[in-house]
Design a protein around this nucleic acid. Structure first.
Lengths: 358, 358
DNA sequence: CTGAAAGCGCTTACAG
DNA sequence: CTGAAAGCGCTTACAG
């Protein structure tokens, strides 16, 4: 550690002017001449001066910092969302603090607390699978922090939600499978207290009804977000006489688990079993067979969520903003895992959306 | 936005005591009785009081915040390192600010600047591939911030470096390939100004010499970290008469590119071509064939780096701490992509280290 | 165009 | 065991 950090007082002293004037010059105040600004900035650089944002924040009551809480940084869905958020923050000269909940309600509360103490101006959150209560979010809001939810949200708390057309997406997924001649389509869902998962289930049911498929009651599995629960449920379904010929899941992790299960059971995908995932994680196209998945435009999702705070929502890429909900369209990326018997595998790598490659 | 945030003065007023005493009670000062502490904390909760760390930081000169700068959050190597850092921060009641450089020197400088302004106590960094100068790191250190490097480091700046036994690892990689009967082993490297890559190349050369292999000069490719450069170089090598029968790379992204290139060229892996990657990214075991890779214990790497700051380096898991370098051992995870002709594929999924599954 | 002064919310030597 | 007071480094009405 070297000597003390330089402050505006040091600069002021060296330059024979007041600290207030230095502050204005440094902040490009309009009433300060270009000449003085340059002089001050030069001296600041010379003294290796760094703006102390804690002091500024304390004074101004704003931290120019945004916080984001997500379940796992390791899922590319979330890391891409963060990339989008980062872009928006960067453009608005904001800093970003990232926290993970690791799908735990307790850790989510801890993270909220950290962010409140850091005096963030806004919290972007995709809640953990355990989160049912919104009290921690409301407490944060009570201290004056904006709360914006994305992807995984709770309806009971007011404020913006940036989400996908979940019902539509699952409905389209069923239509795609029916198109590919799958008839016995099972659904592996997530916790129903989160609307994102509930709506996907509703979309699935809508599709099943419309196609007039005959589905046994136990083809619908709730609250199986974990790999373990998925394998357990899928193993049971695949071992009964009346087994499914396709699975729709609500995450790629679930879809991957089923794909690996099928491999170990020597069930051929897609010939004997179709598998469709959600989120279009980066690993989906590395699998063999490659995995069909619903692309949620995660980066766009994150960017729009952040821009909602900055008041610059770009509605070009969105469907609607009603009821405080901003809906980002999703799109099925068709790959090998849902091409039924006889279809040539080479036709599977269908077009990726422009937005996805950014 | 609701009313003003409660401060210690509000609590003091309501309780008829001084702000200083409230502050002490809240901070569990030993001279304050348990009774009063409870009373104060209860009132604090009642008023929805939140500690303002900007004020505390300003007063104390420390922010209890650590910053980390990495090239990409999307690579599981880095997100796992962050998980380890996070764990250490959590245990020490520190907050963590994550910044990405996106492999750009300019963005890395920006990130340093952000962290300095946020008054972080310490910066953990894995530099971008473009980074050759350490001036920005030195400038940060001149403001009193500790700089700890991990994985990708510059030797020219003093301070701790937490790294792998890079030379050893590459040397062992060659030995493994030689063992599997590969004889014409090519090396796709990274920018040589970063010791991590330079040492891997040296390890490769040591292995080649020891095995007395006859390697054409152009089998050694420098500075090909990007997917494009890798494909370009590998395409050229694989199209010549005297083509390699194996590739050692310095990243799994490079290895993946070569695997996909081989697939498109109808070159069989591992029978005709062995491929060995670096970092043991999570996607390596999802590929077909699965990819042999050097596991760098990324989570441990991150954790040890953070703990170096906290002064609690756990040397159980490390080799040495000389010359300010803490070396984390790495380990080859043998998978299908490097099993030569005739070897049964089922024998490939060798043991994963305990540390890796945490 | 420029400066003196107050204050953001906390912590901590100092004093009792 | 408890309090008054100073000060961390900045910004910004207010005054000129």
């Amino acid at each position: 550690m070297s000597g003390k950090r330089a402050t505006i007082y040091h600069i002021a002293e060296e330059l024979g002017m007041s600290a207030s004037y230095v502050s204005r010059a440094l902040n490009d105040h309009p009433l300060v001449s270009q000449k003085i600004k340059e002089k001050v900035k030069k001296k600041a650089a010379e003294l290796n001066y760094r703006h102390n944002s804690h002091a500024a924040n304390l004074r101004q009551g704003s931290s120019k910092t945004m916080g984001v809480i997500i379940p796992h940084i390791t899922q590319s869905f979330f890391s891409e969302a963060i990339a989008g958020i980062e872009e928006a923050c960067f453009a608005n000269n904001y800093s970003l603090i990232i926290c993970q909940s690791h799908e735990s309600f307790q850790q989510e509360r801890k993270a909220i607390d950290t962010l409140v103490r850091q005096n963030v101006d806004c919290i972007l959150i995709s809640v953990s699978e355990e989160t049912q209560s919104a009290e921690h979010l409301e407490a944060a809001r009570d201290t004056g922090i904006d709360i914006i939810q994305f992807d995984r949200y709770l309806d009971k708390i007011a404020g913006y939600k940036v989400i996908n057309d979940n019902l539509e997406a699952a409905y389209e997924a069923v239509k795609h499978l029916v198109n590919e001649k799958y008839k016995k389509i099972a659904f592996i869902g997530g916790p129903e207290h989160l609307p994102a998962f509930k709506l996907r289930k509703e979309g699935y049911i809508k599709g099943i009804k419309e196609a007039k498929l005959n589905i046994p009651f136990n083809y619908i599995v709730d609250n199986a977000l974990s790999r373990e629960r998925t394998i357990e449920a899928a193993t049971e379904l695949l071992s009964q006489k009346d087994k499914p010929d396709a699975f729709i899941t609500v995450s790629d992790t679930q879809a991957l688990a089923i794909l690996q299960l099928a491999e170990s059971l020597k069930i051929e995908v897609p010939q004997q079993l179709g598998i469709l995932g959600f989120a279009n994680e980066s690993f989906t196209e590395l699998l063999r067979p490659t995995l069909t998945s619903v692309d949620q435009q995660s980066k766009e999702l994150g960017k729009q969520a952040a821009n909602l705070y900055f008041g610059k929502s770009n509605e070009d890429n969105t469907k609607e903003l009603t009821d405080e909900k901003l809906v980002i369209p999703s799109k099925i990326i068709t790959r090998q895992s849902t091409l039924h018997k006889g279809a040539p595998a080479s036709a599977s790598k269908s077009g990726k959306r422009t937005a996805a490659k950014a």
